[in-house]
Amino acid sequence: MFRQAVRQFTTSARRSNLIADLYVRELKAFKPTPISAAAAQEATKPWKLPTAAKVPALEAEGADALSQYDSAPVDVISAAAGEGVVAEEYKPDDWFVFPVDEEPGHHAHH
Rank of each mutant, 00 (worst) to 15 (best):
D70W: 12
A87S: 09
A108W: 01
A5D: 08
E103D: 11
E42S: 05
N17W: 05
H107N: 08
V76Y: 03
K28E: 12
T33Y: 01
Q4R: 14
S36V: 10
P99T: 12
D101R: 13
V85N: 14
E83W: 06
S16T: 14
T51I: 12
Q8G: 00
W95I: 12
V24W: 10
A80E: 13
D75C: 00
S67H: 13
D75H: 01
R15P: 00
E42I: 09
L22A: 02
D64K: 10
K91V: 12
W47R: 06
K45T: 15
V85S: 13
E59L: 01
A87M: 11
P104I: 08
A63I: 15
D93A: 10
W47K: 11
D70H: 08
E83V: 11
P104S: 14
A72Q: 10
D101Q: 14
A37W: 06
S16W: 09
A40I: 11
F30P: 00
E61R: 07
K45D: 13
L58D: 09
L58K: 03
T44K: 11
D94K: 04
P92C: 03
S67C: 07
T51E: 14
P56E: 03
Q8K: 07
S78E: 04
R15I: 09
A63F: 12
E102H: 09
A72D: 09
V6S: 08
E59V: 05
A37L: 05
S71M: 07
P104C: 04
A87C: 05
V86W: 05
D75Q: 10
V85Q: 14
A65G: 03
P104N: 07
A81Y: 04
A108P: 00
E26T: 14
A65Y: 03
S71R: 14
A53L: 04
S67N: 14
P92D: 06
L18G: 02
N17T: 10
K31T: 15
V6P: 02
Q41M: 04
K31Q: 12
D101Y: 14
A65T: 07
F98R: 13
V24D: 13
